[in-house]
Structures are given as structure tokens and as C-alpha cells.
Design a protein around this nucleic acid. Structure first.
Length: 591
RNA sequence: GGUCCCGUAGCUCAGCUGGAUAGAGCAACAGAUUUCUAAUCUGUGGGUCAUAGGUUCGAAUCCUAUCGGGAUCACCA
């Protein structure tokens, strides 16, 4: 039920009736320090009607009370009209809220949206930065689904290029045929190890050359191992069988490793693109742009676009030798994605260091007259910093995703066992709970912050289970489920609310929040912001805990109040579960 | 240097499509458990919303400038 709309309309009607003017009425929740549910700010009317605030406020309030039955009382403070709605009105809202199913069916013809995220390189394992990306992408996808879109989760794997060749060279030189099995290493970590080995060998060679009197710049270019890597890239592009075999072997290990990580962190994709299949795309778009006069050719045959009118620069779209650059591929891939799924909106979850790249990409698409250009959006997110500063792979300060998750699970296990509440759990049941709590803490920690903001990852705080954290919300859910178990309420049971029930202050607060949930989902979808969901669910859990401390459900002697509270807490549990689901976080029945 | 993003309590963050006395959590201190899970709840202290102007009845929020932090300005991806 759209409460805000209903009331706004009544106020607009009142203004038209009394003053004969049409006003757009927007409401806001009344501040806690004042009496009321919703507040209408009418300074605008004071000005245009040239009447005093009390005069207008009282006239509106009186009229509303006399002509509409939903209003209980009003008060006027300066230009603020605070309106209090009747308990019976909120009871009707509550009944409506519990009758609605949160999970809705997505119709076949719902608008299609593609969310591309994760998009890893296959030369090293995932780290903390990737986790923010994965959690964001997954969550935004779920939020868009909840808002009624037909979502395709896509992953573009960067499986080719010089960085993979580096791992390949190092592996063939120093690998001695090591396999994930023989080395006891996850595949992605194994390949990552040789990427590091390459860097070591490369640096040693540079130093050797410098010692021989070669200038540093030249040494970097001429180090033999680097030349070998570049040579390998050429061989790869020429489809050299031996090179392709090695490439396939290493990538296979990496995919196996990634697969395990994705499974643990609960992330998945509907469609995977591989850059090795798409890196040649885009050249026909360059031709098209040249034919249309959107691109121009320089003397050396390189192709450029002038984006100075868009506030950008001249940008290269094809090298003089006819080979692709990053943007060339992206032009082609974007076109391919659209022809595959015809998405109305297309979202790229990519770090903010690529802000410029996406501005250019979208500007070019627009110039090429692509209909979907308007629906393209770069969901840019800030870096994750450590208390010690930036994560730098060269300095070994990168937080590995697998290690981090394992540590979090261990911490969850220790603190859960301390509490002694799950002594009756079977072992795998307990393990599952530890995983749930660990990931809940981690995901919530990374998602509660607005995506575009740079954030600080403090390992100690992220494994905190108190206050504004995932486990706090998970705990609240478990508490409610415990009540429902005791009351023998099952998931599908409908609970009838008695006519004329009266909601107390704490119950009203909860109904007020529950009624907002649909709007919150829409807002989060419009802004591509899981943080909005996180803050809402936290608020709901916190408000419930306040209620819980003051009122008993099970021990309430008045049966009609008890029933009402059972329905209320059941709905809260469902909403928490659903909201956390949108963040990719599971909630336990018991903890 | 050009462009873009950020700056709110000791720390981590909400609030930013202009509204009332700027909110949470952590940390500190004081309380609450014979009663549905205390991973909880209640209370106390803590702020020149980076700075300076401007617009407005009203600015953390919009505009301008300055300062501080970051990103980017590759024929790398």
C-alpha cells in the first residue's frame, strides 16, 4: 500500500480546496522529537500565499481532520505540519503488509538487464579488492531482480595477454611439472606463484644488466625473460599448438581454483565471456565509425576519435598496425553482449580507476548511434585500503581472498563455540553456521559502505560480530525464529489479526519500517546501491531488538495481542531474510 | 598541470533530489538477565559537517574558490 501517495494526495486535495492552488506534496517521516508520523513542509505556501505559517498549517490540519478519517491529530511548528495517523489506519497498513508476498515473480517480458562483474585475470588468485567487486555485482543483480528486472549476471574473463604469458614462461622454466595435486596448491594459487616467480627472475635479470652498465629503462625492455614472454604472446596469437596447450593447462587450473572460491563465497554467473574469444572484436565497429566519419585516420594509419566536445580527449581506437587496444575490444564486446541479450540496461562493476575508460566507451557508443548507449552504466567503486595503506602486490600487502575467508570462518567458529549455544549441532551443521557467519560479517562489512567511496578494511573490525554487522542481523533473525518455533508457527501459515487491535509505540515503529521495504528496494535498484539495503535491514533489526527488550511475544496473556505480535515478528524475519538475501547473505535459524 | 571522486564524533560509516536540536556502530564509562537467545537492550560523555564566500525564509546537502587525500590523463588491460 502506498501510504505516502495516499496521504500526499489528500493534502494536495486540501490545498486545492482551501486555496485553489495545485501543489506537489512530498512528505517526510516526522522527526522523533515531534509528535506525528509524517510531516508536510509548507514554507513554499507561506511565500506564495503570503499568509502566516500557523494560519496555513491550522487551516490544512483542521480540514484534513474533518474530511478524512485516517488522521488522528496534527500540530504545526513553524512551516511544518506534523500529521499523526490513526492506530486503525496503521493496523490496516500492517494487515496489508503481512498479506503481501515479498518475493515476486518476474514476468517473461520484464526489461532485461546485464550486470557484468568479477572479471578476473587468470594469472593470480582473487584478493580483497575482487571480493568487493564480486559482492557488489552479485548484490546489485539480486536487487535488480527484486525490483522486477530480468537479470543476466555476466563475467568477462581476462584469459589472455602478456600477464598470462609471464606465468607460463615462469612455469615452463621453473615449474618442474608441478601440478595442483603434486604441489598441494589450489590451481589459481599455483599459477599465481609462478607469476611471482616471473617477477623475481625479471628483477634479477634487470639488476644483472644494470650491473653491466645497461641503463635501467633499456634493461627493463631487454631482460631476456621479458622478451620470452612477449615472444610467447606472439606464438599464442599465431595459435602455436604447444603454447596453446600450456595456456589451456594453466587456465584450467585457475578456473578450478576460481570455481572453488566462487562457490565458497556464494557468487555465480549466468554467462561467461572469455577475452580470448572476444579480443579481436570491435574492428568492424572501427570500420563503421570511419565510414560514418566519426573516427579519423592519422598518417600512420592509427584510428582516433575526437571527444573534445564531450569534455574528453582525442582517443586512439585502433593501432597503426591494425591491432586492437583495450577500448577496441570493449566496443566489440559491448555490441556482442547487446546482440546476445538485448538488455535495456547494462552495468559494469569495475573499479573507479577506469572511470575515464567508461566515459569514453559510452561516448563512442552514443556517437555510433547505439540505441542501448543510454542504458549503459559504470558502477564504479572505490579501492579497499588497509590500515597500513594501499594494497600493493609488489610489496606483498595484498589480502588473499581465500586466506581471508578461511580466517573469518575460524574466528566465527571460536566465538560461536565460546557462547555455547549450539552444543546440540551436528558437525556439518556447525561448519555451515560458521561459514554463514563469517561470510555474513565479510559481505556486510564490504557492502554497507556506499560503492563509490573508498573504504578502509580493518581486519579486526570486519570480524566484529557486534553492533552494525552482519552477524548482529543474523542473530536477530535467529532470535525471531526461536520465538516462532516455540509458538509452532510454520513458514506458510497465515495469521489472522483481530479487528480493532491496537498497536503500541514499538509495534507502530516496526510497521512503519516494514511498509517502507518495497520503496527501499526500488531506491536501491535505481541507485545500484546495496548499502541502502544494508542500512535498512540494520535499522529493522535494531528496532526489533528494542521491541524485544520491552515486550514479550510468547508470554503475552492477551491472545489477540500475542497473535498480532507473532504475525509482526514473522514478517520481520521474512523481511530480514529477504533483505540479507539481496546482499548475498544467508541467515541462520539458530545461532 | 587538465579532468573526475572523496573530506561528517577519537575510529568506521549513515544522512546529501535544501527543512526542525546532524544520526548509528566501535572504543570509554554507568546500568539491565527468576520471564521468548545478553552475539541483546538502556543511559552518559564526545561535532567550527575540511576552510572561506555566495544563493535561500532555511545549507552537512546547491554554486564558486581554497586546502587536504585519491584516481586518471598509455599505440597496458
Amino acid at each position: 500500500m502506498d501510504v505516502l501517495n495516499q496521504i500526499s494526495q489528500k493534502i494536495a486535495q486540501t490545498i486545492a480546496e482551501i486555496y485553489g492552488v495545485n501543489e506537489e506534496v512530498t512528505l517526510q517521516p516526522t522527526r522523533k522529537d515531534f509528535e506525528g508520523d509524517y510531516t508536510y513542509v509548507f514554507f513554499g505556501l507561506v511565500k506564495s500565499l503570503k499568509k502566516s505559517p500557523p494560519e496555513i498549517g491550522n487551516a490544512l490540519g483542521t480540514y484534513l481532520l474533518e474530511n478524512f478519517e485516517d488522521f488522528e491529530s496534527y500540530n504545526v511548528v513553524q512551516g511544518f505540519l506534523n500529521l499523526k495517523l490513526k492506530n486503525s489506519f496503521w493496523l490496516a497498513v500492517f494487515k496489508n503488509v503481512i498479506s503481501e508476498n515479498i518475493v515476486m515473480e518476474i514476468p517473461e517480458n520484464a526489461p532485461a538487464v546485464m550486470v557484468e562483474y568479477s572479471s578476473p585475470n587468470t594469472n593470480k588468485p582473487l584478493h580483497l579488492g575482487h571480493l568487493r567487486n564480486n559482492f557488489l555485482g552479485y548484490s546489485v543483480s539480486e536487487i535488480l531482480k527484486a525490483a522486477g528486472y530480468n537479470v543476466t549476471k555476466a563475467c568477462l574473463v581476462n584469459d589472455r595477454g602478456i600477464h598470462i604469458c609471464k606465468s607460463m614462461i615462469a612455469y615452463s622454466k621453473f615449474g618442474n611439472g608441478e601440478t595442483p595435486e603434486s604441489g598441494g596448491l589450489k590451481g589459481d594459487h599455483l599459477v599465481g606463484k609462478y607469476y611471482v616467480e616471473f617477477d623475481k627472475a625479471y628483477k634479477a635479470e634487470i639488476n644483472e644488466l644494470i650491473a653491466k652498465g645497461v641503463p635501467e629503462e633499456e634493461a627493463k625492455k631487454k631482460a631476456p625473460i621479458m622478451l620470452e614472454a612477449q615472444d610467447l604472446l606472439v606464438k599464442w596469437e599465431q595459435n602455436d599448438p604447444e603454447t596453446i596447450d600450456l595456456w589451456k593447462k594453466l587456465n584450467g587450473w585457475v578456473y578450478e581454483g576460481f570455481g572453488k572460491t566462487y562457490k565458497t563465497i556464494g557468487v555465480d554467473f549466468d554467462k561467461t565471456y572469455y577475452e580470448s574469444n572476444t579480443y579481436l572484436l570491435g574492428k568492424d565497429l572501427v570500420e563503421e565509425g570511419l565510414a560514418n566519419g566519426i573516427f579519423y585516420k592519422k598518417e600512420d594509419n592509427s584510428v582516433w576519435i575526437d571527444l573534445t566536445e564531450e569534455g574528453l580527449d582525442h582517443k586512439l581506437v585502433l593501432r597503426g598496425d591494425g591491432t586492437s587496444v583495450y577500448i577496441t575490444q570493449d566496443l566489440g564486446t559491448t555490441d556482442l553482449k547487446f546482440s546476445d541479450f538485448h538488455s535495456e540496461k547494462s552495468i559494469w562493476v569495475v573499479g573507479n580507476e577506469q572511470d575515464y575508460h567508461f566515459k569514453v566507451l559510452f561516448a563512442i557508443m552514443k556517437k555510433l548511434g547505439r540505441s542501448y548507449a543510454e542504458g549503459c552504466y559504470h558502477l564504479s567503486y572505490g579501492m579497499v585500503d588497509l590500515p597500513s595503506g594501499k594494497m600493493k602486490s609488489r610489496e606483498g600487502t595484498v589480502v588473499d581472498a581465500d586466506d581471508l575467508v578461511a580466517e573469518m570462518i575460524e574466528t566465527a567458529a571460536v566465538s560461536t563455540k565460546e557462547k555455547g549455544k549450539i552444543d546440540d549441532f551436528e558437525n556439518d551443521e556447525a561448519q555451515n553456521l560458521f561459514r554463514m557467519l563469517a561470510l555474513g560479517a565479510l559481505k556486510y562489512f564490504l557492502l554497507k559502505v556506499e560503492p563509490k567511496k573508498r573504504m578502509l578494511f580493518n581486519p579486526e573490525e570486519s570480524i566484529d560480530f557486534q553492533g552494525n554487522t552482519g552477524p548482529f542481523i543474523q542473530y536477530t533473525h535467529a532470535r525471531i525464529k526461536s520465538i516462532l518455533r516455540r509458538a509452532n508457527i510454520t513458514e506458510n501459515q497465515t495469521i489472522e489479526i483481530a479487528e480493532g487491535s491496537i498497536l503500541n509505540k514499538e509495534e507502530l515503529d516496526l510497521v512503519f519500517l516494514l511498509n517502507q521495504y518495497n520503496d527501499i528496494i526500488q531506491k536501491a535498484a535505481e541507485e545500484y546501491s546495496p548499502a541502502i539495503i544494508a542500512n535498512y535491514v540494520y535499522d529493522l533489526a535494531k528496532t526489533f531488538n528494542g521491541f524485544y527488550a520491552q515486550h514479550s511475544v510468547i508470554n503475552e496473556t492477551d491472545e489477540s495481542i500475542k497473535t498480532l505480535r507473532l504475525a509482526l515478528v514473522k514478517k520481520i524475519a521474512q523481511t530480514i531474510k529477504h533483505g540479507m538475501g539481496l546482499l548475498g547473505i544467508e541467515v541462520p535459524e539458530k545461532m
